[in-house]
């Protein structure tokens, strides 16, 4: 952290009753914005924050690159004969894992953001209530897209050759982003109910580690013991990875895709409602 220097208030300012009267003149009050417009405006706030604090993009670029390189070379030789071959299987899964892990920053970010006075101002505005949070998540969606693109880029360099071509890859990223948007509402809820940034982090890890590792990301579940397969089968990440893998390979698995879309809708509805309930009473 660099110390911020506070610029001296050099201008000798004298408030003028006339100019203040002019800004308070009861002109036509504009019509209040609709839900979409308000959410996009809050999304713009998230963009501005990235512009002013670009370091926050570090986690969404470096972390995925390290994950991809690490697991490709760690397991590649042993599990699939060569890293290049393993990459064909691993890449969609590692993309899902990285992005889903990044979603937890939504909760951490909200937990610190909400303590600042600016949220008081947002909550006294007569706009669609969820807009502030939807906008924040829309900003995070940009980070998810960036992380996914970085991983696919690294994959292509290492020899990943998706059968679905450009359309398949885009569809895979699209599915992942839809799911991550929905999943983020779990973190906003936790971000509002937990006391500190640290506890949000702790709980997130506790949820994310089993969810991402006890899945079909790294190996086919067929070699796992029965009880573990049972967990892997109900794990949403498994379905998401299956869906993303299928569209990237150019052989869409309609069942898995439907599962992902329905799960996303349910997750948004349930955790969106829980989040708003907390947000309104905060």
């Amino acid at each position: 952290m660099s110390t911020t220097t506070v610029a001296p208030d050099t201008t000798a300012y004298t408030p003028s009753a006339e100019t203040i009267a002019a800004v308070l003149a009861p002109g036509e009050k504009p019509r209040r914005p609709g839900p979409v417009s308000a959410s996009l405006t809050f999304g713009w706030r998230a963009m501005l924050k990235i512009k002013h604090v670009p370091e926050q993009l570090f986690d969404v670029t470096m972390f995925p690159i390290i994950m991809t390189l690490m697991f490709t070379y760690l397991f590649g030789g042993a599990l699939a004969g060569s890293p290049r071959e393993y990459l064909q299987y691993l890449l969609p899964g590692i993309m899902v894992t990285s992005v889903v892990m990044i979603t937890m920053y939504t909760g951490v970010g909200l937990n610190t953001d909400i303590e600042k006075g600016v949220f008081d101002r947002f909550r006294t505005l007569a706009v669609w209530r969820p807009a502030a949070l939807v906008g924040m998540i829309l900003g995070d969606v940009l980070r998810y897209v960036l992380a996914a693109v970085v991983i696919v880029g690294v994959g292509l360099v290492l020899g990943f050759r998706p059968g679905g071509g450009v359309m398949g890859v885009l569809a895979g990223i699209g599915l992942l982003v839809v799911f991550s948007f929905a999943f983020s509402w779990i973190w906003t809820w936790l971000g509002l109910i937990l006391r500190s940034e640290k506890s949000v982090m702790g709980v997130s890890m506790l949820v994310l580690f089993p969810l991402t590792f006890l899945s079909n990301v790294f190996v086919e579940p067929l070699t796992m013991p029965g009880w573990l397969q049972a967990f892997v089968d109900v794990n949403p990440i498994t379905h998401l990875v299956a869906a993303v893998r299928s569209v990237m390979a150019g052989a869409p698995d309609a069942g898995a895709i439907t599962w992902v879309l329905v799960a996303s809708a349910v997750c948004t509805a349930v955790f969106g409602a829980l989040t708003m309930h907390r947000y309104n009473r905060k």
């Binding site: 009050k29 504009p30 019509r31 209040r32 914005p33 417009s37 308000a38 405006t41 809050f42 713009w44 706030r45 501005l48 924050k49 002013h52 604090v53 600042k116 006075g117 600016v118 008081d120 101002r121 947002f122 006294t124 505005l125 706009v127 807009a131």
Partner: peptide
């Protein structure tokens, strides 16, 4: 409208950005 005891604008944004943001939210 409320001016809270502690800052109630976004400290990461500039003065202009804050006021444009809020104006947009007012419609």
């Amino acid at each position: 409208s409320l001016t809270g005891q502690y800052a109630s604008v976004d400290e990461d944004l500039t003065g202009t950005e804050n006021l444009i943001l809020l104006s947009r939210l007012l419609g």
